[in-house]
Design a binder for these strands. Structure first.
Length: 414
DNA sequence: TCTGGGGTCCTAGGACCC
DNA sequence: TCTGGGGTCCTAGGACCC
């Protein structure tokens, strides 16, 4: 078949755990992959969920996403190490760079996964030989293993990559679908999560094959036009989406935190919002973007989520403007009594800034705030994030921060 | 199963306009 | 004006992904 594509899906095995292990080995420490170990946050801060586990840890029945406390109960000798995203970012780039030498296009799917279009590069060779070489190079040069899934499109490559781990290569060609994919439990299909699986099971659909052979009209009635069509297509292995080497424009930026202790007063909550806004607004400016829509999300201790958003007349990147909007949204959102477990702030309807879009009003009124933001961004870029704090006066600040902070506080009072 | 954080996409209802 | 339909934007919430 001349028009058949050949796509690889490359997925780092237990990425965070492997990468932390590689880093530790380089410092002469033990290999976490060989003992019961997990990567996970701080129990005291309630960030205690398992982000990645070693194979020995898996043998104790430890799952990704479960609370660290439960994991320790299953395996009292468990080693838990917090994540280090700087290391992950570095090793992620390194393995993707190797991938790029095998493909005409590489799509970043997540920090530890990518798709490769190798149609041109392996057309007259065996894709499996190329995948073997790629896999070996990553192992030899970087010290960790990957799974490679091979198929005629991204969906099937990804499904193949998931078959058996670690350090494996699998194919899922059209002719292999009935034998390799259809017997799988329907929840294994990409885009079928817990809720969809339950709904499918309720109408007698248990295997991917059941879904593939079902009536698409019935599925559309049940799940809606879009999702119905999509489920039917996926179960049959249909996916013609291209491998995108150029990332899409980001649609929004968000930041959220599960509080170490539930917030019970407006003051506590707003202090958190201030920090979150500060962080996400800085990210927005670093990308040279502005946002028209501001959102605030809260999660009650009951795990009920509520959110509120507003669209501004004009896109902004000014911390103070975003902060004011976020406070207002929070006031409208919170019932003033239920303790809050999580708070989040999001920015969307992102626009780039061309000078022409900035009105006279904006220029005259926001010049000062812009200067303050720019000054703080610059100081942090040079001396680190913790050097300067916005209007939080009960913090000890190092020498370098004092001078700037004093000036900043004066500016604020005007 | 007592559950992190950052994203994307979809749905449904209402407002508003023609 | 008691009455239609379509398009677009806004908002809240949900499902899913890693």
């Amino acid at each position: 078949m001349a028009d058949q594509r050949v796509i690889f899906h490359v997925d780092v095995n237990s990425a965070f755990l492997s990468w932390t292990s590689v880093e530790r080995l380089s410092r002469g420490e033990s290999d976490l992959r060989k003992i019961p170990a997990v990567i996970g946050g701080d129990i005291k801060k309630r960030h205690g969920v398992v982000l990645a586990k070693s194979i020995p840890a898996k043998a104790f029945g430890i799952h990704t996403g479960e609370p660290l406390t439960d994991a320790v109960r299953k395996c009292p000798d468990l080693i838990a190490v917090p994540p280090d995203f700087e290391v992950y970012q570095r090793l992620s780039s390194a393995f993707k760079n190797i991938c790029r030498t095998y493909a005409t296009a590489v799509e970043d799917f997540s920090i530890d996964e990518c798709f490769l279009d190798v149609t041109q590069t392996t057309a007259f060779d065996h894709p499996i030989a190329a995948a073997n070489e790629l896999k070996s190079r990553i192992k030899n040069e970087l010290g960790f293993t990957v799974n490679v899934g091979i198929g005629p499109n991204k969906l099937l490559a990804k499904m193949a990559g998931d078959f058996e781990k670690p350090d494996k290569i699998h194919t899922l060609w059209w002719r292999e679908i009935p034998a390799k994919m259809w017997p799988l439990e329907v929840g294994r299909l990409l885009s079928v999560g817990r809720k969809t699986r339950q709904k499918l099971n309720a109408c007698g659909i248990w295997k991917i094959g059941d879904l593939a052979r079902d009536d698409p009209k019935k599925l559309k009635k049940l799940f809606g036009e879009k999702q119905g069509a999509h489920l039917y297509a996926y179960a049959n292995g249909w996916d013609d989406s291209p491998v995108r080497a150029v990332p899409r424009e980001e649609k929004g930026y968000s930041i959220s935190i599960t509080l170490p202790k539930n917030a019970e007063t407006e003051d506590e909550a707003k202090r958190v919002i201030k920090k979150l806004v500060d962080g996400v607004a800085m990210r927005l400016r670093s990308r040279k973007k502005r946002a028209r829509r501001i959102g605030v999300q809260i999660r009650y201790a009951s795990f009920k989520d509520r959110s509120h958003q507003m669209t501004l007349d004009q896109a902004t990147d000014i911390t103070r403007t975003i902060e004011k909007a976020a406070y207002r949204l929070f006031d409208e959102l919170w019932d003033q009594k239920t303790p809050i477990r999580l708070i989040g702030v999001s920015l969307s309807q992102i626009e780039g800034h061309s000078v022409s879009q900035i009105s006279m009003f904006d220029r005259e009124n926001n010049e000062r705030e812009r200067q303050i933001d720019a000054a703080i961004d610059a100081i942090r870029k040079r001396y680190g994030m913790d050097v300067i704090n916005r209007g939080v006066s009960d913090q000890k600040l190092p020498q370098i921060g004092k001078k700037y902070r004093a000036r900043f506080e004066i500016d604020r009072k005007k």
